Computed example of a mutant assay.
Amino acid sequence: MSSTRTLAPPERYHFGASVRPLVVPKHDPCGRFTGDDLWLALRTPDGPATLHLSRSKTDLTATGYGPGAEWVLEHADAIAGLRDDLSGFPALAAAHPLVERLARTFAGVRLPRTGLVFRSVLRAVLEQKVTGKEAHRAYRLICARLSEPAPGPVELHLPPDPAVIAATPYWVFHPFGVEQRRTQALQRAALVADRLERCADAAEATTRLTALPGIGPWTAAEVVRVAYGDPDAVSVGDFHIPNTVAWALAGETRGTDARMLELLAPFVGHRGRVCDLLAHGGIGAPKFGPRMPIRSFARF
């Protein structure tokens, strides 16, 4: 059984750039993006579900499968980024010519909002202090081996149940390439997942997340940017973003977190959106050092 809803995107809406961040690059056991189609498996408050968003020339068609089908249809517009409010951003963007230009160029990009916290916690914790390749490998293995198939006509896995993550011994995660520190942080969040899902807004979720050992401002920002579509969430502590912001907004090849926040101050309310625009524009600071090495924790 499935249910369908038709959505009307705004003018110049860019489907791919808006929803692609919801799926791990190359292969995601819980999602699939193929240009004009997004398939996303979710654990909703009403039960397992799969959402299919299909893009046509004029609209989006949302189809829900599984016990949580009505929930995903109710939230389909938010997941597609159609509830993202840019009304006050053009005036702020005018504070810097580059930001103003990028805001016009990527005016069709919207921030998605899933309304689901632990789904983003899993990915963000795994991405702490490691390369994307390492984090995505661990994510794929955990989702494929600690979860079950999602409802619907495509072969997807649901994101792992927090109760399963909390109850799984550490040594199970080790062959996935996840060391004890990240495993413990993930399991602490899993133990309070119900409370996290009930947070009223991004501010409350940030407070609750950063109160957990092993979860700091970077992880919390990565979570609330997707779960709540928070346009102001800045990933303080990131390896690259402070340099990117310093280079783009001040012509400085290197920047600290403090300098990044100083340069982003004119854009308060949309600071995370500005960082995303720099990424969409392919802007990065000059590179002087070697890349972070890929390690295998499973061999330690």
Score class of each variant (00 low, 15 high):
274 V>Y: 08
235 S>D: 11
205 A>P: 01
287 K>N: 12
281 G>A: 04
280 H>R: 14
236 V>N: 02
190 A>Q: 08
276 D>T: 15
185 A>E: 11
258 A>F: 10
253 T>S: 11
285 A>S: 04
184 Q>E: 15
212 L>S: 00
287 K>I: 12
201 D>T: 01
183 T>D: 12
269 G>V: 02
193 A>F: 09
223 V>L: 13
173 F>V: 00
298 A>K: 13
171 W>M: 13
177 G>M: 04
255 G>S: 02
222 E>R: 10
182 R>D: 12
203 A>D: 11
219 T>N: 11
275 C>H: 06
234 V>I: 12
222 E>I: 05
176 F>R: 01
254 R>Y: 05
228 Y>S: 11
216 G>M: 02
281 G>H: 04
279 A>Q: 14
281 G>S: 09
198 R>D: 11
206 T>M: 10
288 F>Y: 10
273 R>H: 09
206 T>Y: 10
182 R>E: 11
289 G>F: 14
202 A>S: 13
202 A>Y: 06
283 I>F: 07
256 T>R: 00
277 L>T: 06
213 P>N: 03
270 H>W: 07
176 F>Y: 08
279 A>N: 13
218 W>Q: 04
234 V>P: 06
221 A>M: 11
215 I>D: 00
229 G>C: 13
182 R>N: 13
262 E>D: 09
260 M>G: 07
278 L>R: 05
230 D>T: 06
272 G>S: 10
178 V>F: 07
189 A>H: 03
207 T>I: 12
190 A>Y: 02
273 R>D: 05
265 A>Y: 07
178 V>Q: 06
173 F>W: 04
275 C>P: 08
229 G>F: 13
284 G>L: 07
283 I>M: 09
288 F>C: 10
